[in-house]
Design a protein around this nucleic acid. Sequence first.
RNA 1: GCGCCCAUCGUCUAGCGGUCUAGGACGUCGCCCUUUCACGGCGAAAACAGGGGUUCGAGUCCCCUUGGGCGCGCCA
Length: 483
Amino acid sequence: MSSSVVTRFAPSPTGFLHIGGARTALFNWLYAKKTGGKMLLRIEDTDRERSTDAAITAIIDGLKWLGLDWDGDVVHQFARVDRHRAAAEELLASGRAYRCYASQEELAEMREAARREGRPPRYDGRWRDRDAAEAPPGVAPVIRLKAPQEGETIVDDAVQGRVVFPNKDLDDLVLLRSDGTPTYMLAVVVDDHDMGVTHIIRGDDHFTNAARQTQIYNAFGWRVPAMAHIPLIHGPDGSKLSKRHGALGVEAYRAMGYLPAALRNYLVRLGWSQGDKEFFSTEEMIEAFDLSQVHRSPARFDFAKLENMNGHYMRATPDAELIEILEATLPFLPGGPEIAAKLDAKKRAQILAAIPGLKERAKTLIELVDGMGFLFAARPLALDEKAGGILAQGGSALLARLLPKLATLPEWSVAAAEAAVRDFAENTGMKLGQVAQPLRAALTGRLTSPGIFDVLAVLGRDESLARIADQAENTRRSAAARG
RNA sequence: GCGCCCAUCGUCUAGCGGUCUAGGACGUCGCCCUUUCACGGCGAAAACAGGGGUUCGAGUCCCCUUGGGCGCGCCA
């Protein structure tokens, strides 16, 4: 009766949640949301050697950060070994599987011989019909699937289409290892079945597995879930995504200052599209997402586009919300903890006042933090090369003349400061830029910043005048004389 | 080696036989706006991998070639 959709994300905890896995999770999540179904989370930890708790934590944290939630409890595959073993026994009993006593050496020889003769490497089925009485003593057998040797296995994939695999190309895969633990092939099938998974959405590196797993489903007499194998993400050069290219854990993207919403939007447009539309709110994404619009060709990862998209998201995020995200992310950003330590009510108020001008100029949270550096700088400001240069070339002298005008301002505001500075420029026959730049240098230590009058207002009268005085010529000289 | 999948600007893509002298976005390059840097606006360069078919007509369908990717474990 329950015809509702159940998808699952099934990572193996041998590393962090990488970007391809994140997209797979996103597609599963979107499809479940769109259909009003559920997305389950299963940790494929049957490889005891390589699975780690740290990886499990990283994957779960990554999903949470990305805003992808799942239904029900996390299923740990290894906890189900007894069930897997029983399932293998069941197949043994029904004659759809058999014990194989071939040694590793025999298997290696088989592969070697196949390679020499130009045949595909496959198990030759030597124990398929052999009597158990012939079993060599003291050898723990594996259980293999007695796969059909004639005919074909068909995978009708929602993305890849209908693909036919001749059964002669598929061999008798191992279901249960000699130590009694299940292989991945057995465990996925049993778990997906038991968990009621209706749609398997995963990377197309699993495509051949789909055929083999279909045979296992058939052996059990179970209905095969709908399959959708989505193309992999490649590096900028079209080759496999490497660490250098962006095959990083999602936490690395967090540390690079990307917003989860932006990353989701970027990821969904990799291998899926709806006309020319580039930006999708979460609601729009859920509404628009469809397996039939998923492409079959792999896409390359492009940081430039991600960055652009992130910039759009930052600008579109309401100020208070952006600050909230920023504060939550600070611990992960380079230099972030130092900023976090300095945050107090006054700084927060200044950030709130400065954020409109700041977010306009930043594509990532890192750039945002960088841009607000002047708020945290201690007097006398360290000047970068260009700022120092412009002050040395007459800037200081100019500031010395400007300082008294600002110091006597009856009211300290953006409008008042602007009026005074424009007036000063006009009276001295200078363009506004000629005055603004030295001012900027003194106030921020560099030559790029938000609008200078905003900077003046955000910094406040005392701090502004003090910073200007620090760099004004006569003050500098007297400081030098004193020092 | 064998099997499978893929192929439109540098990149992500629109295109689902005629409306394509191929559209959008990012990036690049100009110009404008301008107190810097951004943002924004305007404009430019930039692609149907190659060859055969099918058809009145092909970027769109078929085949081959080439080029990529994935798979071929008692890993997942």
